[in-house]
Design a protein around this nucleic acid. Sequence first.
RNA 1: GCCGGGGUGGCGGAAUGGAAGACGCAACGGACUUAAAAUCCGUUGGGAGCUUGCUCCCGUGAGGGUUCGAGUCCCUCUCCCGGCACCA
Length: 814
Amino acid sequence: MKKYNFSEIEEKWQKKWEEAEIYRAKFRSEKKKFYVLEMFPYTSAQIHMGHVRNYTIGDVIARYKVMKGYNVLHPIGYDAFGLPAENAAIKHKVDPKEWTYNNISTIRRQLKKLGLSYCWEREVITCTPEYYRWNQFFFIEFFKRGLVYKKKSPANWCPSCQTVLANEQVVDGKCWRCGSIVEQKELSQWFIKITDYAEKLLDFSGIKNWPERVILMQKNWIGKSTGCEIVFHLVEINQPIKVFTTRADTLFGVTFLAISPYHPVVSEIIKKSPYKEEVKKFVEKVRKTSLSVEDVLKTEKEGIDTGISAINPANGEKVPVWIGNYVLMEYGTGAVMGVPAHDQRDFEFAKKYNLPVKIVIKNPEWEKIPEEIEAAYEGEGIMVNSGIFDGLESNKGKEEVCKWLERKRKGKEAVYYKLRDWCISRQRYWGTPIPVVYCEKCGIVPVKEEDLPVKLPEKIEITGKGKSPLENVEEFVKCKCPECGRDARRETDTMDTFVDSSWYFLRYASGDTENKPFDKKEVNYWMPVDQYIGGIEHAILHLLYSRFFVKALKDMGYVDFDEPFENLLCQGMVIKDGAKMSKSKGNVVDPEEMIEKYGVDTLRLFILFAAPPELDLEWSEKGIEGCWRFLNRVWNLNQKISEYKSSGNGNDKKLEILIHKTVKGVSEDIEKGFHFNTAIAKMMEFTNAITKMINEKNVSEIKLKEVWSKFIKLLYPFAPHISEELWEMAGNKNFLFFEKWPEFKEEILTEEKVTIVIQVNGKVRGKIEVPPGLKEEEVFNLILKDEKIARWIEGKEIVKKIFVPDKILNIVVK
RNA sequence: GCCGGGGUGGCGGAAUGGAAGACGCAACGGACUUAAAAUCCGUUGGGAGCUUGCUCCCGUGAGGGUUCGAGUCCCUCUCCCGGCACCA
């Protein structure tokens, strides 16, 4: 008997598939399409098990959908710009481009080894001028419509390296390379106005099936809150100041105002404050401290009395104005009303500085208003000490106070979002140059469309010192103003790589990309992506930015749909010994080694079988051996079947039911939630059962061969190489890829016999084999003859019987 | 703190409110072999009983509830994982 020689088989079919170009996607408007997409790999390293899992899931779906008759698009590309290339350049003196392309060729070779059904002709590499040119094009389109703008914003700055650091390069508030304390430095940076789309991004009605948690995470990230904008009056400065609150019902409990050290009015306050020096010192101190997340949390609430006072518009009361380090400038109005009795932060602040606590909402659990409280009461209640609003429910009070203020022109209803504009400036080399020119006369001028792309200069020196590597490239910086033609300077910031990944899926979906970002007609045909697959780590940024891009492009008339990804599957991590695979833990399993040892089909099968896609997958060498054994059994069974001779046909019907059951099970497992693990289990059950039947020699060879060829088709999306080989061995000349997925008939599934479970008082007391479709009475009469069951009913009063046809009979006795 | 998700054999994991533990791994027994590996055939949640292949009891984090019947639905608690977090 010939042994299962996986390496020979896999090499053979990968070559044949490539030669026949079977995966090339074609635009065919009359055919129903299916777009399967996996998040493209970052070109910083080799392929790891996480990628194998991601791409295998996509590949099964793609192959299955083709067999189901869809016109499938299944592309791949490389996320090729970004920091790692530049870091490698600094560390090992290699050219970022060379480094990136080396990695790409490794990754491409690995992907091909995995036997994935990609349309390679559509490969996208984001660091090519052919691609990033369109990043620049869209930037300018956005610019024209006021969707990009420049503003000062703090950036992480390492004073020793003299460079800007990305958030991930700041470790414990220190520079990852030299360990100096990272400072915040105000830099003028480019922003995309994603906040204009906050409301549209909160609308998920165009999405069919995303994990609930991803939608939730996006909603929280956007963070819409409806409340009231209230105008206080600053007495000594004689100007108004706005605060935002979601609890206008607590307005009468305000005992101070707290404003952010970054608030524009601070300079005015310093001028008028009786404690000028102290206030100035405090503000400077706060502004110096690092803004990293951990630090902010650790920082204790601190503030300083400015000596300035404000008038509460509700009751004309004068309250002190403080500057507080806990007031964010980036959210709301940069100033908050302090209500210690009903806000825990304000409470802590008030306790620390001995500010009064005034209760204006009565907790229903209180019998009377307490003299003192130990914590703020943030719940609902009845309004007290609130003038005309006394006795009103706080819930209603929120709106009533707001309306009342509106009539007095001292406030209005307002909506605020946590979402901030998207900073796309990177003071880095390896990215898309921002296509803008600075002219002394004309100011900020976008590069003309016909002059795109603004090419990234090659072979430049990257030291990691100084602001941006591009600033030192004279030929790049020096240019002419597109408007007036005078000497001008080029922008040296490059774009965030999230810009690249916000529309790559549109580029894939376009056959013709010669002189345009994509072909509208083709993109409208293929899009939206029917199934997107990737890691949960992109739940917010990448997915939100892509949604924004598509919505903005729709508004600009480039596309006709408004969601990029209709269905999303977030696959779990591949872990070993309970931890994510990583070099530092030394628990990495190299996919290529596994392919060498067991073959791709076995690797794919194991990775699909070991856990459902959305759960973490524990790597197990023993587990992969189990899948290896399964494929060998399939291989050996195939030989047995090809040599099988028998005239018996007693089990033909049973075999027919078995294959229909398997087809149904596998199809449904794929359809509802991609339960590949149970689909594979069903195929294993099938082979176990068919083995027995072959040994019994009671099936006809015609039936056996017919059923077996259906099974090979089921196996194909999971283990395509071996399936294709078996298919050919059976004498077929065509590729399995173009075969129709087997169908099942429900009526064949009605078996000759069903097992009815007999329960007495809900406990299983027996089971009987009967022909299907028996009535309750018939079943009951049968069990009376069955001693084992009957003795549980004997001498008891039958209260009632519950009967589920062909399934269960439960007899309730007393 | 807030918001999600989840606790099922020795392990990975199955179970439209209807036989808990499919399938795989590990383990054990047997066949083949001089022997081992590989392969094939069995057994395998825990406990008790005897006539040794059958009977009964217990069992899905803990406690309660709904139901003829709960891993599944409801309530309380507990532990684990993930996200967010001075967002006014």
